Computed example of a mutant assay.
Amino acid sequence: MNNIQQFPFISVSGAPFERGVLYGQQAKERVHGSVRLYGQTLVHLGYSEQARKRLIDFFAKQIENFAPHYVEEMRGIAQGAGVTFEDIVMINARTEVLAKARAEKVEAVDSEPGDGCTGALILPERSATGNLIHGQNWDWRAECVETSIVLRVRNDNGPDFLTFVEAGGLARSGFNSAGVSITANYLESDRDFTQLGVPLSLIRRKVLEQEIFSLAMKAVGTTPKSCSNNIMLGMAEGFGIDFECTTNESFAIYPGEDGLIVHANHWVSEVALGKLVDMGLGQSPDSRYRDWRVRKLLNQKDKLGRADLKAAFFDDFGAPYSVCRPPRLGSHDNLSATVAMVIMEPAVGEMEVAPLPAIHKVFTRYSLKDEPVLVAA
């Protein structure tokens, strides 16, 4: 972790399979890194070869039913990177696989670090530029600093988009040229795996393909899921909303009177808490104060810019169980950390990303139009 590199920038265009091949070729080394991290996950969790095939085939079928061109693109990524299609499905469905193992109380899943995250959205009335600002700290395996990328897709059939994502994945945090932005945080409930649905990474991708914000909300709110998740959406025209999602229902959280949405890894909606049980606080008890800290810090100023959101996300209160998590040992010697800080201003088509921000406060500015440039914190 001493020689921290900025996240590579991959830009692709063309038909789904064609751009998948280009993606796989350009990100080949990092895709192989993702495969090493996740390719053997099902083996480690005790799945037999037959059971592994059955689960991967199920998710591939769900993806194909949801959007066939995602399967084409994933096959292209596999070909371009020289890995199997099943490996790419596993990268895109790893949240579901790990959550399923956790729900089934598979002992080996305890070796996985907590998939944290603290997200925030600033409405234009609180923004110094008058533009919506949307960001997130992504907490997960520290090794993913070496397997993540920023992907730009020039889309023939929809808006162009920019996404920070694990190599081989189709989307994570990002925004599109129509001004729709998305971040997502881990949640857990007692409804998880009462059904199986579309992998969350593909729902995020679906959001980034929408030119109309209401259709982005529909993709989040109505797509069946295998497990819970929190999804925050922004609209460059001046609106934001957060959806606490379980398998078959979503609960909307609107910006407060302070013009902010802040969310960590516990359920907040009173309606949701009246219907389900939060099962995730044992994994991330620090969630209780992470969102409180970010809101408190942001509300110290009237008008807020990207630098202010960065400063709130750099917060080390409660370290190492802090908003900005330094690399720390988890179970079985896994390193857990804030892998990336992502700050987006969709109206100007820019995203700033810093790898391992607790120890490396250097950002790269990525753009829908221009080449990446280094910027100060």
Rank of each mutant, 00 (worst) to 15 (best):
T163D: 07
T163Q: 03
E166R: 08
E166I: 08
A167P: 12
G168V: 01
G169M: 13
G169F: 02
L170N: 04
L170P: 00
S173W: 09
S173Y: 09
G174H: 14
F175Q: 09
N176T: 13
A178V: 09
G179Y: 09
S181H: 05
S181M: 08
T183C: 12
T183V: 14
A184S: 15
A184M: 14
A184F: 10
A184R: 06
N185Y: 15
N185Q: 15
Y186W: 10
Y186K: 10
Y186S: 10
L187Y: 14
E188N: 01
E188G: 10
E188F: 04
S189C: 13
S189P: 08
D190M: 04
D192Y: 03
F193L: 04
F193M: 01
T194Q: 11
Q195R: 13
Q195T: 10
L196Y: 07
L196M: 12
G197K: 04
V198I: 14
L200R: 03
S201Y: 02
S201K: 00
S201C: 02
L202F: 14
L202P: 00
K206V: 02
K206E: 14
L208V: 11
L208M: 05
L208S: 07
Q210L: 00
Q210S: 03
I212W: 01
F213D: 00
F213V: 05
F213T: 04
S214Q: 06
S214L: 02
A216V: 06
A216K: 05
M217C: 15
M217I: 05
K218F: 12
K218W: 13
V220E: 08
G221V: 10
T222A: 12
T222S: 14
T223N: 07
P224S: 05
K225C: 02
K225D: 01
S226Y: 02
S226R: 00
C227L: 03
C227V: 02
N229P: 00
N229M: 11
N229Y: 08
N230K: 03
N230W: 05
N230D: 08
N230A: 11
I231Q: 02
M232S: 12
M232H: 06
M232K: 06
M232F: 07
G234A: 10
M235C: 09
M235L: 05
M235N: 08
A236N: 03
E237R: 11
E237A: 09
G238I: 02
G238R: 08
D242L: 15
D242T: 07
F243D: 07
E244S: 11
C245M: 05
C245P: 06
T246Y: 01
T246M: 08
T247L: 00
T247C: 01
T247D: 00
T247S: 01
T247N: 01
E249Y: 12
E249P: 04
E249M: 15
E249D: 13
S250L: 14
S250F: 15
S250H: 15
F251T: 14
A252P: 15
Y254F: 15
Y254M: 12
Y254A: 12
P255D: 00
G256D: 14
E257I: 09
G259R: 04
L260S: 08
L260P: 09
L260K: 09
L260W: 06
I261K: 02
I261A: 06
H263C: 06
